[in-house]
Design a protein around this nucleic acid. Structure first.
Lengths: 139, 139
DNA sequence: CTTGCACCTGTAGCTGCTACAGGTTTTATT
DNA sequence: AATAAAACCTGTAGCAGCTACAGGTGCAAG
């Protein structure tokens, strides 16, 4: 039970386990300055506090919602500086929602196209495949 | 009217224009061997024929349908070798269709989550933002 | 006091492009 | 025939968002 070192802070493995974010990814976040540099133990190991843990959780959830690291970064910078209005965050969310809906619409078009394509030949003929022909535009 | 050089073949700019694939991308496709090396003019410029043009079109349309270059590569290799069955292509398409549907389902979950998030605060309060709180998990 | 795990740094790889820099070839204009 | 401008060439580096090493330390337990 190495992980907790509770007086000093949380080791990277522990916050990885708790947030579900890969250790390598956490170090990557630090490098690109989405996560702050944590303090270190005498031996040089990263020691995180609760607030850093929360921040990582925030990033994780935001990523799962499809926000880019850049967007998350902007958001966090706003939050950090206290210069953020709730309505700004709201707008960002709505904007992102629009993107997501757009993506869905695209994928549904794609779905229809693929369905049609597949329907054209479910019977496995030999080498004059309608799918290939359609894609090749030779028809 | 440089582009056609019709006896020799089509210049890269011309097939780019006709297929809508970026010139840099065409050269990239050649490098990663999705497109074959075309013959060259005396001065070293790439000269394409109709079949290469069609192949590029195929790649373009397949990419638009969300197939990865690897998948397209596999497909083309099969087609090239004549060892392809229509049913194999069909299966590949159906498999891809499944992926697309999965992606759609994910995005719809995401859409719901974002909608809820946005609904929580449309009124722009100041600094205790429910979105941020939700994401931060501090609530 | 050694085993063994968790940590460290730094670098390279992945996908699918795009964007240079710095040079040549071809075409068009003078 | 000279020159300007467009289109081509090669090679390399960059983008997102990680992941995967290699090769080395820290640290606790047996």
């Amino acid at each position: 039970m190495t992980q907790i070192t509770s007086e000093q802070g949380l080791l990277i493995g522990e916050i990885s386990r708790r947030t579900g974010v890969n250790i390598e990814t956490i170090r990557y976040y630090e490098r690109i300055e989405v996560m702050p540099k944590p303090k270190r133990s005498e031996g040089g190991q990263r020691l995180y506090n609760e607030s850093q843990l929360n921040r990582l959780g925030f990033i994780k959830r935001s990523r799962e919602l499809g926000f880019s690291l850049k967007e998350i970064c902007n958001l966090l910078t706003l939050v950090d500086s206290g210069e953020m209005t709730c309505s700004e965050v709201h707008d960002l969310t709505v904007e992102h929602l629009r993107d997501v809906r757009h993506k869905i619409a695209d994928l549904r078009k794609l779905e229809r196209a693929l369905k049609n394509l597949a329907a054209q030949c479910s019977l496995g003929d030999v080498s004059d495949c309608p799918i290939v022909e359609t894609l090749y535009g030779l028809s």
